[in-house]
């Protein structure tokens, strides 16, 4: 199942649980380092939402910042890209600890 289809499934389940009929806006949280290309998600989103309660809904993507643990510095450091150098020591022995999120965050519904 595709990512956009999973998004729709989450929306439809929430609609049942919380009793709303239409979705105007969908907010996704996408980690800066997640394997998701926002443009590609947007493309799939429109196609998958067609004919559903979220047809025509606006898509907003919130980027969660990347973070890592530098093995060299033994410290948490911000990461903006993969591969990312440690901003403190410049080394590349950094393990990703944040920014891999892939979540439906909130909906504007009616």
């Amino acid at each position: 199942m595709s990512l956009a289809e999973n998004v729709l499934q989450i929306i439809e389940q929430a609609a049942q649980e919380q009793g709303f009929g239409r979705v105007r806006t969908v907010v996704l949280e996408i980690g800066q380092l997640a394997a998701v290309e926002p443009e590609a998600m947007r493309f799939c989103f429109a196609a998958v939402m067609a004919g559903s309660i979220a047809e025509g809904a606006a898509l907003e993507m919130v980027t969660a910042p990347g973070a890592g643990w530098c093995l060299q510095c033994a410290a948490s450091v911000p990461l903006t890209e993969q591969p990312g150098a440690c901003p403190r020591c410049g080394g590349f022995r950094v393990r990703v600890t944040g920014g891999a999120e892939l979540r439906v965050k909130e909906l504007l519904v009616e």
Binding site: T25, E60, L108
Partner: peptide, 28 residues
């Protein structure tokens, strides 16, 4: 978080619109 865009009533303005924000926080 929600940016409602042009021409839409903000959801938190009570009485103006039936729209509301639903927090989901579910992993895709």
């Amino acid at each position: 978080l929600l940016h409602l865009g042009r021409g839409e009533t903000h959801a938190h303005a009570p009485g103006l619109s039936p729209a509301r924000v639903v927090r989901i926080e579910r992993d895709i």
